[in-house]
């Protein structure tokens, strides 16, 4: 498999804090990669560096062979790196349809067009995306009126409208109840399969990580501590020490059902 995202020696310092410290990471096409680590490990900073929200002090980010290091956010978005946000970020006063349509207009670079009717434009593609996130029935609803879970799905739909090849998810299940979490991750996995997306996500919930990721990168104090398939990572004594803690370390590895439910 060829590499879609290649990161070499990426570093970022905030004042006295080395938030990201020489991280290397390669994500192959079609891979589902998780980034884990305790709070303050540098996960969100790493995402901000990849998406161009922050400029790295050192290192390179290559996407599909092209160097995108330090490019502005919208360039990176247009190159095919999408991002769904940790905090729900939608357009509350617009309808659900309009929310997704806007992503579509942005992807087609039609947002500056001062003529032609916007209403109903790209309806086919927009409805298709709404279908896949199960929001088709709410297309005409004001986005701000949706439930929290639906808003998260909408947020994802807006990101999908940009037709990313790599989708970054920042704690996709933060603040969700267990049942919601399961549902949300099924949705993410299904969409990734349907649309041939490569996933890079950071997450606190270990069940989510081990149930979804093909490979896991563990970060600690800005550095890459360990890397590998979930079972390798789980067996790694360093990881157990800094992150998983004694309780998890004593548990037997494996024993997951096909949907990622950990059998406790």
């Amino acid at each position: 498999m060829s590499a879609l995202l290649e990161i070499e020696g990426l570093s970022k310092r905030f004042g006295g804090l080395q938030a990201v410290d020489g991280v290397d990471l390669t994500v192959a096409v079609g891979e589902r990669r998780a980034v884990i680590g305790p709070n303050g490990a540098g996960k969100t900073t790493l995402f901000n560096l990849i998406t161009g929200y922050l400029r790295p002090d050192a290192g390179r980010v290559r996407f599909d062979g092209a160097d995108v290091t330090g490019k502005p956010t919208h360039r990176i978005a247009q190159a095919g790196i999408g991002r769904a946000f940790q905090i729900t970020s939608i357009f509350p006063g617009l309808t659900v349809f309009e929310n997704v349509q806007l992503g579509r207009l942005a992807q087609r670079r039609e947002t500056a067009r001062p003529f032609g009717v916007a209403a109903g434009r790209h309806a086919g593609e927009v409805n298709d995306i709404l279908d896949s996130v199960r929001l088709a029935g709410l297309a005409g609803e004001r986005a701000g009126n949706l439930s929290h879970g639906d808003q998260r799905a909408l947020e994802l739909a807006i990101s999908l409208a940009l037709e990313p090849r790599l989708l970054l998810l920042d704690e996709p299940t933060a603040g969700m109840a267990p049942a919601e979490t399961d549902q949300a991750m099924r949705l993410v996995r299904r969409i990734a399969e349907e649309r041939g997306l490569t996933l890079l996500f950071c997450e606190h919930d270990m069940e989510v990580v081990f149930g979804t990721a093909d490979r896991v990168l563990v970060m600690h104090e800005g550095k890459a501590l360990a890397e590998g398939v979930p079972d390798e990572v789980r067996a790694n004594p360093d990881v157990q020490r800094v992150y998983l803690g004694e309780e998890v370390a004593q548990r037997p590895t494996g024993g997951r059902d096909p949907d990622g439910e950990e059998v406790a």
């Binding site: 978005a77 970020s89 357009f91 006063g93 309009e98 992807q107 500056a112 067009r113």
Partner: peptide, 28 residues
Amino acid sequence: SVAMRSPFGATLRAIRENRDRAGFLGIK
């Protein structure tokens, strides 16, 4: 009216609703 019903007008409304999100969509 033409300008406000156009994709340009729709983009303006999106900026009104959430500037930052619009920016992340690649809208300057």
